[in-house]
Simulated assay, not measured.
Amino acid sequence: MREEDIIKELSKLKKDENYRSLKSIDKKYINFSSNDYLGLNEDRELRIEFFEKYKNVDLMFSSSSSRLLSGTYPIIIKLEKILEKIYNKKALLFNSGYDANTCLIETLFYKNSLIISDRYNHSSIYAGIKASEAKLLRYRHLDYNHLEEILKKYSLEYDDILVVSETIYSMDGDKADIKELVQLKNKYKFKFKLLIDEAHSFGVSGYGECYEADALDLVDYIVIPLGKAGASIGAYVLMDELSKEYLINKGRKFIYTTALPPINVAWNLFILEKIEKFDFRRERLIEISEYTRNLLSKYEIKTISTTNIISIVIGENQRVNRISENLQEKGYLIYPIKEPTVPKGTARLRVSLTALHTEEIIQKFVEELKYEIDNIL
C-alpha cells in the first residue's frame, strides 16, 4: 500500500472520529472495560496459592519451540488430558482465541463447504471463513427461524455444512440458545456440523454453555478462549479425534507457532481445576448484573443486554466519544465501541461488569451516565 494511501485512510478515520490509538492507563479508574468477569486476575490470594502450589516446579517463561518440536512439554499434555476427561472430546491448546477460530475453520473447511454464521459472530470467525474459501451465508442475529430457512434451502445442495455461533455476544450482551441449535441439528439428522465459541461464557457459566446445556455430544467443535473469565491467555479447541489429528498435521497457525510458555499453561490448568469452586463469584456476577439492568431501566437508559455485558447504544461516533471522555474524566474506565466492530450508526458504550463491582459503584456510575446522555446531544 502506498504511503499516500495510508495517510489518506488514516485522515478519513480521524475525520469520522473512528481513529484508534494506544493509551497507557496511568491512573486509578473504576474499570468497566475489563473482561475479567469473575475477578480472578485481580485476586492476589489466588496468585499466591498458584505460586505456592508450583514453587518446586521449574516453570519456564518461554517454551522456545513449536508444539511439533520441543514445545509439547508434560504440563500441556496434562492440561489437554484433563480437558478431554471433562468434555469427553479431544483437546488442543492454541495461543489465542483468534488463532483457534481461524485455524479450525480454514483448515477443516474448503471451497466446497457451506458455512452459515450468525451475522454478529466475531471477526476471527469471518477471517477463518474467508481463508477457507467456503460459501458464506449469514443468518439474522439469534434468529433460528432464519437459520432454518437457510438449512431448508441448502441442506440437499451441500454435503459439508458448518453452522457457527457464539454463546454470549460481547457487543450486545445477549445470549445464544444452545438447546435450540442442537434441536435443529437433530431435526436435520446431523446434516450440518456445529461450532460454538465460548469466549464470554467459559467461567461465567462454569465449564461453558455447551457443558451446562448437556450438549457436548451434539456440538462438534467448541472453542474456549481464555482471555476473559479464564483470566489468562490461550484457547482450548475441543473436537473429535480425527479433527485433532488433521489440525496437528495441516493447521498452519498451530504448526508454525511457538507454544505457550509453561508458566501460562500451569496457570490455565490451575484455573481449570478450580472452576467449580467459583460458584460464589458467578452468583455475585448475576446479582450485580440484575441490579445494573434494573437501575438502567429506572433511569430510562435502554439496553437489550441480558448478561453481565451491558451494551448501551448511543448512535453517532462524536457523541459516544464525548460521553466516554467525560466519564473517564470522572474516574470510570469505559471506551466507545464503533464501526467496524459494530454497524455504522450504532456506536455504543460497552459496560463490562465483574464480580468485583458493588451496588454503590454501580449507583454512582449510572447517575453519571444518565447525566452525560441527557446533556451530550
Rank of each mutant, 00 (worst) to 15 (best):
L114Y: 04
S34A: 13
P261M: 04
K191C: 01
I233G: 01
T258S: 11
Y158V: 01
L353T: 04
S243A: 11
T303H: 11
E149G: 05
F50E: 01
L137P: 04
L296F: 14
C210N: 15
I288L: 05
L238W: 09
F190S: 14
H357D: 12
I168W: 06
K244A: 02
F190A: 10
E157R: 08
E360Q: 09
I75L: 15
R319W: 06
G173D: 13
F280R: 04
N326T: 05
K250R: 05
F192L: 02
K330P: 03
L194Y: 15
P343I: 00
E283G: 11
Y54M: 07
L40C: 10
I301E: 13
Y188T: 01
L296S: 10
F94E: 00
E290A: 09
S24L: 13
H141E: 13
T258F: 04
L83E: 07
N35F: 10
F278W: 09
K175M: 14
I125M: 03
K23M: 10
A355P: 14
Y29G: 12
I82E: 04
K8P: 10
Y291E: 12
K364L: 02
L147R: 00
H141L: 10
Y37H: 06
Y236D: 03
M1F: 05
K78H: 07
D172M: 11
Y169T: 14
G97W: 02
G208Q: 12
D240K: 06
F280N: 06
E157Q: 10
R281E: 03
K274E: 02
I129W: 07
E283I: 10
I161E: 11
D172H: 04
L216M: 15
I373T: 03
Y98F: 11
N31Y: 02
A131H: 04
A91N: 02
V265Y: 11
S64D: 08
S201I: 03
I77P: 00
L13F: 13
T307S: 15
K15H: 12
T354M: 03
Y246K: 12
I82V: 07
I82C: 00
I275N: 06
K14R: 14
S170Q: 05
G227F: 00
H141S: 12
N317M: 02
R284Q: 10
N88V: 09
G345P: 12
G251P: 07
S155M: 01
L194S: 11
L216H: 09
A127P: 00
N268P: 10
Y169Q: 14
T258M: 09
K28I: 14
I25G: 11
K28R: 15
